[in-house]
Write a protein that binds this DNA or RNA. Sequence first.
DNA 1: CGTCTCCTTGATTGAAATCAACTTAGGTGG
DNA 2: CCACCTAAGTTGATTTCAATCAAGGAGACG
Lengths: 211, 211
Amino acid sequence: MLSILGPNDRADGVLLATGPVRNVSQDQTIYSMSEPAEAILKVVSGMVRTCRFMSNGRRQIDAFHIEGDVFGFEAGAHYSLSAEAVSDCTLVCYRRSDLLSLAARHQGLANQLYLHSIRNLARAHAHACLLGRFSALEKLASFLADESAHSPQREQVTLAMNRTDIADYLGLTVETVSRSLAMLRRSKLIEFSSPREIKLKDLNGLRVLAV
Amino acid sequence: MLSILGPNDRADGVLLATGPVRNVSQDQTIYSMSEPAEAILKVVSGMVRTCRFMSNGRRQIDAFHIEGDVFGFEAGAHYSLSAEAVSDCTLVCYRRSDLLSLAARHQGLANQLYLHSIRNLARAHAHACLLGRFSALEKLASFLADESAHSPQREQVTLAMNRTDIADYLGLTVETVSRSLAMLRRSKLIEFSSPREIKLKDLNGLRVLAV
DNA sequence: CGTCTCCTTGATTGAAATCAACTTAGGTGG
DNA sequence: CCACCTAAGTTGATTTCAATCAAGGAGACG
């Protein structure tokens, strides 16, 4: 499904016309902090990270976006986050101004926009909780449980991102991510076939840890 | 301004009819996590905190809402956060279902709803950054600089919330909040006339610390 | 085969949490 | 109106968890 709308919505065709497909290769920047926030984008395939870069090289990843997710919602005229491709991606781009004027005429679209922004808000709330009050181990357990929910097989996750991305998403360092994963492995909750291929041997145990 | 819409919007009168005013006294719960998310509320006066309670008594405050802020946006059918009055408050309550059906007919309202949700999203992003990557001192400096921005006098803030609220907002303990404030005082960046009355002697210095 | 990047592991340090008093301020009742 | 009581805030000592510093291993690619 390429459009923000469902396939049955009448504005669908219009949207497709306004939304060119964009292919982005791994680690390429989709948009940067402080450039004009002209586009709202939808992930067709691949994974996108939205992140903020701070002084002295610190980075905080706000979210990983996967197929079906819409990102690029901004309150102001400029992006307050950057967006980058975690893996090769296919995206649909909508011009913000087009979308908003279209939404004025198509109720379904307005609803979808609203819904997507609120869904991002809900994720941000859960993320804040994790960042503010979880231990390193809890953060990793929670992260893996979330990944599992989006994986085709519940008990087997293939990480699209590297350890640095995970660290910057969870507010940790790479070393702590590595160590916490090792702890989960030693506790028989997970198992690696490769660093990016993790078998969740005890998903319930993970969920308990994830608070 | 009582309505979500500006006073000049035609849906204004309708909204007022659907939105009864509610007075809430300090520390009273406005709504609780997991109850049906029936209302979206706007702060007329006072301060509201939206927060999540976790196992073993941990709490994360998502945001403090002040006059003009709208809160209660939820992706699902139930609240994922609780809302409580930090001080005595006056709120306007809108039934979510009313609001959404009204929005279908009044473009201005739909826009306002969208805008408020996105504004909350932007705040959540900034907050995530603070929680994930700021030191205790940076968190406090950033917090005070934000408070200053909403204060009638830039250089004088009156905190509506107590130290525990601040700690749970910044992902710290009360002791660390107290110690960090003491450090800022010793560095001549701030000055107390009482624990809740803080004079920002060097707002620029604070902003530098706030990254 | 060597080099580079990514990941892991070890040793040590450091910042914030925890544990424990103590102080101050505010509210209530004598 | 003052004294007491309680809640809120501060400060100190110690511990702990994660960061930092440092090195080594594994896999990918030319």
